[in-house]
Amino acid sequence: MSSWLRVAAAVAGKDIVIEVRTKTAILSAVVFAALVLIVFNFARDASLVSTTELAPSVLWITFAFAGMITLNRGFNLEKENAALEGLLLAPVPRSAIYVGKLISNLAFVGMVEAVALPLFVLFFNVPVWGVLPGLLGLMVLATIGFVAVGTVFSAMTVRTRFSELMLPMLLLPFMVPPLIGAVQTTTRLLAGRPLSEMIGWLRILALYDVVFITLCVLIFPAVVDE
């Protein structure tokens, strides 16, 4: 059991260290997030469309696309691939590798979301302070969903020619349930609605996370092993 944890932690740690040093994905994702927010702000007619109506969608689209940029790079470094192949030669539990990758990807996407959220509050002037714990919890719940699937898919698409195109193409349908749930819940959170109105969506999000993490752990060996 402890060796499983050690493997997972080692995989996660290595990735995070590399990213902290190079900062490539985080930077590009943050720039992307800022761009999206700026464009949306100037694209709408403030008298026709209120920020509170538009804000949740914009926020989650930003998270989704910035997340995809980050995921794409997650398996991309050449040293990265060689290291992974080395790791696979040993009888290391594949589930530990997957969870390690999942944790590091969550850390990356989480960092991007952590930067994008304040920008979002700044540009859109939405009252998040009162609901911040709820919003953060929601961000974790929804992000886990699509990052779990994205980790498996990016492991596959990194070996194809147009990986930057293949990953979004495969991942997009899988982002639909987490994104719908996230946007619906965010809308209600910002409007100060009671928990009872959000519980349905939260249940779907939680179920999605449980089902897909389980499935991904089971299916990841098929991606990395012959």
Binding site: L170, P173, P177, I219
Partner: peptide
């Protein structure tokens, strides 16, 4: 890889149903 996508897609469909239904 195709098998992985096929299986994951099959598991996804009920969630789409659920989301739209809700």
């Amino acid at each position: 890889f195709s098998a992985v996508v096929g299986i994951m897609g099959m598991v996804l469909v009920p969630f789409i149903h659920l989301s739209v239904y809700l």
